[in-house]
């Protein structure tokens, strides 16, 4: 496969361009919603020190979404702020599992947030994110690979952070272990769309957006996750919805309403 080295070259190859954009939207929308859920946690983590550390990861994750939205902007999409704030739920490619609220209540009112969900979800997501970025970095579309390489620079400590929490809690009290195991079982019921390319896996591979097949990446994810968590051996995971096919529930509507509340109050204003 010939490599596509520049944005200009990519813009001239429509099939590769569409594949690249789909991959990038999946990535950016995942990071955006993950950062939103993270920002809801601010001030509510198990202790102050963790609040501070978690917030840096949340900011970095938002920074990654910005970087990828800007890449999409360079590929002819709307400006990054509009991609983040103005797209309706029906145009988003984020995983429904990542959209799930942090727990009952809202961040403003009675937030009964569950640290076990945060730890398991973010560990599973960061593991998938690493694998997905690594394959893109080895792909043959340079603008996509470049964005992936950049993000991979600072992502390892995010993964290490959540791995540490998962390992320590699993090796502590029966109560903690049980809470984490429940969230692992839940992920196997709900997180299917997170580790999916939504039917675009073959197109990504054929166009060099990724260097590996979707199945191979999922197996790599499973193997890595199982080296850390007592997780089921089998794939596929079931899903709560298929965000990759733009099928979302009300959780995303609620999230977007909050994220975009001020932006949409006057779209032309400078804020």
């Amino acid at each position: 496969m010939t490599s596509i080295d520049t944005v200009e070259a990519l813009l001239e190859n429509n099939e590769a361009l569409q594949a690249a954009k789909t991959f990038l939207f999946q990535l950016a929308d995942d990071d955006y919603i993950t950062s939103f859920r993270g920002s809801e946690w601010l001030g509510l983590a198990p202790h102050i020190e963790e609040d501070v550390a978690f917030s840096s990861i949340t900011q970095n994750t938002m920074g990654h979404a910005v970087l990828v939205y800007q890449t999409l902007e360079a590929l002819g999409e709307a400006e990054a702020d509009k991609l983040a704030h103005a797209r309706p739920a029906g145009e988003r490619l984020s995983s429904v599992y990542l959209e799930k609220p942090n727990g009952p209540g809202t961040y403003l009112d009675e937030p009964h947030y569950d640290w076990a969900l945060a730890v398991i979800r973010l560990y599973l997501y960061e593991t998938w994110k690493k694998i997905r970025l690594q394959t893109a970095a080895r792909g043959s579309i340079r603008p996509v690979a470049a964005a992936a390489e950049k993000i991979l620079m600072e992502q390892p400590y995010h993964l290490a952070h959540w791995k540490m929490w998962a390992v320590q809690l699993l090796d502590s009290t029966p109560e903690a272990k049980e809470r984490l195991e429940e969230r692992i079982a839940e992920a196997w019921r709900e997180a299917g769309d997170m580790i999916s390319f939504g039917g675009h896996g073959q197109t990504f591979l054929e166009n060099g957006v990724t260097a590996d097949s979707e199945e191979a990446l999922q197996l790599r994810w499973l193997e890595e996750v199982r080296s850390v968590l007592p997780a089921p051996a089998e794939l596929p995971l079931k899903e709560a919805g298929d965000g990759r096919r733009k099928e979302h529930g009300s959780d995303l509507d609620q999230a977007l309403k909050t994220c975009s509340e001020v932006f949409t109050s006057d779209r032309e204003a400078v804020w």
Binding site: Q59, G63, V66, L67, M153, E154
Partner: peptide, 16 residues
């Protein structure tokens, strides 16, 4: 390995 993997930060934090 940790020094190599955990200490890099992207140069995109003018906001802070």
């Amino acid at each position: 390995e940790e020094r190599e993997m955990w200490t890099n930060r992207l140069d995109n934090k003018e906001y802070r």
